[in-house]
Amino acid sequence: MDWVSENLDLIGSLTLEHLRQSVIAIAAGFALSLPLGWVAWRYRLLRGWVITVTGLLYTIPSLALLMILPVVAGYPATSETNLVIALTIYAIAIMVRAVTDGLDSVDPAVRRSATAVGYGAARRFWAVDLPLAGPVILAGLRVTAVSTISLATVGILVGVTNLGYLFTNGLQRRIVPEVLAGIVAVAVIALLIDLALMAAGRTLMPWARGAAPARRSAAEAAS
C-alpha cells in the first residue's frame, strides 16, 4: 500500500479527469436521449427503428468504436473528445429506451386529465409527462452513469488518460496496489455519482417517495 500513499496526487488528478469525462458523456447522453426517446414514444412508426438502432449501438465493441470514430469524424484517437463521444453513444443506447419506457409508464388517465383542465401539448409534456416519467428515466440514468464510469477506463487503450491508466501502468510494472487503487477509485466515484442521482431524484420528485400505497386511516377514508 506504500504505492498508494506515495501517489495520492496522481490518483486524485486521474480521478478528476475520469469524473469530468464521464459526467460530460452522461449529461450529453441524457440530453440527446430526451428528444430521441420522445420521438420514439410519440411516433409509433419510428419507434421500432429508434429503439432497435440505438440498442444495437451497445453491441459495438468499445475498442473498435474508439478506433473507428476518429477515422470517420477526423479527430485524433488520443483526444478526450474521442472518448467522450464514444461514451455518449453508449449512454444513448441505454437512455433512449429508458425515456420511452418512462413516457409509456405515465397513466393515460392523468394525461387526459391534464388536457381536460387546459394544458397545451408542449406545456403538458414539460409539466406532466416528463416529471411523471421521471422515476423510470432516473432508473435508466443510474444504470447509464455506473456503466459509463466503468466503461471510461477503456480510453487508456487509445491513449486517453483517466483512471484506466492505473490498470495498464500497474499491469506493465506489476504493481498490484496500483491496479487495486484503480478499481477502488472507479467503484467509489460510481457509488458517489449514484448516490448523488438518488438524492437529486428525491429532491426533484418528492411525490414519488414511498410511491404506491396510499396512507389512509379509517377516519380519513370516511370523510
Binding site: D107, A109, V110, R112, S113, A114, A116, V117, V128, P131, L132, M205, W207, A208
Partner: peptide
C-alpha cells in the same frame, strides 16, 4: 372538469 378518481396530478 371533474372526473372519476379526481384525475389529480400525482406529482402536484
Amino acid at each position: 372538469y371533474v372526473m372519476q378518481n379526481g384525475g389529480l396530478m400525482p406529482h402536484f
